[in-house]
């Protein structure tokens, strides 16, 4: 994990963003020494959302292909954990689950090539529902039950696994952003036909982008399943999990790497805060904050920072649209 990051540093032309991330990761990894167990658990949960939101925005951010398949890969990861958890250590389960998600995403990517815009969105959404209902049907028909226990894993181990995944996904996200591959993704978002015209293999870029954005979700699903102890198809393939990264990324601002991170962190934290302090009115306040935030911060939380920065520099252009 550390070698990966330092390699990222070497490749970087600007030291600041990766350097800061590295510092943050080191601080996070030292956290268990300083804070209480529950704080770790809470941060662990927030980081899992950060990973999912960052993963999602690797593909959907630049291309504009809104994918609602997150819950599918997350759920597959959970089932991987329930089935393999007794036989293999968690990091290995996560790797297997990640690779499986990657391969399944490749296949889905190839199938859905023709679909654009909201048709792609609904297809990915249907995928989640299909898996949920199919697995439910299979479980009832063949295993005669519905849910499965997930072998429990020490939460600190889960935390470090999640942290490792975060490091990997941040690195990938950063490298993609700076690479020709990232430019190709943006090109597809701006005009797919034009991108194809200038010699970008849009098919390959799209399928690969979709797969890359899926593997970490599978890995996180496998890790987080150990935190729920028991799963059934309804719990594993929860469609809220598909909407969450979308909401978080838009909330934070989609066009930058920090956007989804901040969006996910604030979103997840706000939810936890409201749900424990004012459970009676949690949903109302949460909904109201969402509406107000969108109305007054249409470019997401990071959009406002960008705006301020731009204004100080005197540049009048709005870069976030």
């Amino acid at each position: 994990m550390n070698t990966n990051i330092s390699r990222g540093r070497l490749n970087a032309k600007k030291i600041a963003p990766p350097g800061l991330s590295l510092l943050a990761l080191i601080l996070l990894s030292l956290l268990p020494i300083f804070v209480t167990d529950y704080t770790i658990i809470k941060i662990n949960s927030i980081i899992s959302f950060v990973i999912i939101a960052v993963s999602w925005s690797i593909f959907s951010g630049p291309t504009g292909y809104i994918s609602l398949s997150t819950a599918a890969f997350y759920g597959l990861g959970m089932y991987a954990s329930a089935i393999l958890g007794n036989h293999l250590p968690l990091p290995l389960v996560m790797v297997i689950s990640g690779i499986a998600s990657f391969i399944i995403a490749l296949i889905i990517g190839v199938i859905t090539l023709r679909l654009r815009g909201v048709y792609f969105t609904i297809f990915t959404f249907g995928l989640v529902e299909l898996l949920r209902n199919l697995i439910l049907w299979l479980e009832i028909k063949f295993s005669g039950t519905r849910g499965r226990f997930v072998p429990s894993v020490d939460f600190q181990q889960v935390f470090y696994c999640i942290l490792g995944t975060l490091a990997i996904i941040l690195l990938i996200s950063y490298l993609i952003k700076r690479s020709r591959f990232g430019l190709a993704l943006i090109g597809i978002g701006e005009s797919e036909d034009a991108a194809a015209h200038i010699g970008i293999n849009t098919t390959l870029v799209k399928v690969l982008g979709f797969s890359i954005s899926s593997f970490a979700v599978g890995a996180v699903g496998a890790a987080m399943a150990t935190r729920t102890n028991y799963i059934d198809p309804g719990i594993a393939f929860n469609m809220l999990m598909s909407f969450m990264p979308v909401l978080m990324a838009i909330f934070g601002g989609m066009s930058t790497i920090p956007g989804p991170i901040i969006g996910a962190a604030v979103f997840a934290y706000l939810e936890e805060l409201l749900i424990t302090k004012v459970p009676e009115y949690f949903m109302i306040i949460f909904g109201a904050i969402m509406i107000i935030a969108i109305l007054f911060l249409p470019n997401g939380l990071t959009g406002i920072a960008g705006k301020l920065f731009k204004r100080r520099k005197g540049a009048g252009k709005n870069a976030n649209t």
């Binding site: 529950y38 809470k42 749900i275 424990t276």
Partner: peptide, 22 residues
């Protein structure tokens, strides 16, 4: 001390840990 889990399993298990640990 009663928390709401919004009928979500992951939230529920996490909040039990909050009740116990915090």
């Amino acid at each position: 001390i009663i928390y709401d889990d919004k009928s979500d399993m992951a939230t529920m298990t996490r909040l039990y840990e909050k009740l116990i640990l915090e």
